[in-house]
């Protein structure tokens, strides 16, 4: 089955020269887009068109184009990663859009993620939060056999649900408080569920939450928007576990 061709669509794209400049929307029209193309392939075509006109292409972040690296980060028509549920921007396809559509494309809007250029933001804050404690303190080597500690399947499965986080930033970008709680919770919860991670669970929860607060992310008010927009469907139950871990840790102080 050959895909349908969209004869014309209109794009309103956020353009911003660099971190210091003021940005604004520019409007572009593009033609003959196959509905089998991905959203980012559509942007490739826009960029080819801009280059052929001697204009600077739209800068946007993308890499694996199969929904796992977490690089792509677009607000499409007011939703993180666009109108489909449970996908990243790169997995969004043009069959989701109709002939003659007008599509608005913006970068993540979140104080913790300043714009670098056009649609590209700096997510270094997420790096810093993980550096504060998102690991198990083991060195390479001298490790017991992988089967030395049995882990109940439900715990391993739930840890995997949390570990599926791709660090894209959709949660904080969507949250009205710009809270990074779902991101922090995913890591804290994954490691708290596993015997290997339990050893330093208290220190981890405190350090990661403190770093998140220090970097200016807001508080969680349980609106659940993060869970709705998470491309990996990470549940806010992990936030509940983070809160428990955090309180437990604080009570011990």
């Amino acid at each position: 089955m050959a895909d349908k061709i969209l004869k014309e669509i209109t794009l309103k794209v956020w353009r911003q020269k660099d971190a210091k400049s003021k940005g604004k929307f520019e409007t572009y029209k593009i033609h003959n887009i196959s509905q089998g193309s991905s959203f980012l392939e559509m942007l490739d075509i826009l960029n080819e068109q801009l280059v052929s006109e001697g204009k600077e292409p739209v800068a946007f972040d993308h890499d694996c184009r199969e929904g796992i690296c977490g690089t792509c980060s677009l607000f499409v028509d007011g939703r993180a990663h666009g109108p489909d549920d449970d996908v990243t921007t790169c997995q969004l396809h043009m069959r989701r859009f109709d002939e003659g559509a007008t599509i608005t494309i913006e970068p993540w809007r979140c104080g913790g993620f300043p714009v670098i250029k056009d649609l590209i933001v700096n997510r270094g804050a997420y790096e810093q939060i993980l550096q504060a404690g998102g690991y198990v303190s083991v060195n390479t080597g001298g490790i017991p056999d992988g089967n030395a500690i049995p882990i109940p399947k439900p715990a391993a499965d739930e840890a995997m649900d949390a570990a599926a986080c791709i660090g894209c930033g959709a949660c904080a970008a969507t949250c009205k408080n710009s809270s990074a709680m779902l991101f922090v919770a995913a890591k804290v919860s994954q490691l708290a569920l596993l015997p290997q991670g339990k050893v330093e669970a208290a220190r981890r929860a405190k350090a990661m939450v403190a770093k998140m607060d220090e970097l200016g992310f807001g508080a969680c008010t349980n609106t659940g928007a993060c869970e709705m927009e998470c491309p990996k469907s990470i549940s806010i139950e992990h936030i509940a576990r983070l809160n428990r871990e955090f309180i437990k840790a604080k009570l011990k102080d």
Binding site: V138, I143, G146, L194
Partner: peptide, 11 residues
């Protein structure tokens, strides 16, 4: 062994 110790949630 190394990955299990790091908290990699293998099946």
């Amino acid at each position: 062994d190394q990955c299990v110790a790091q908290g990699v949630p293998f099946a």
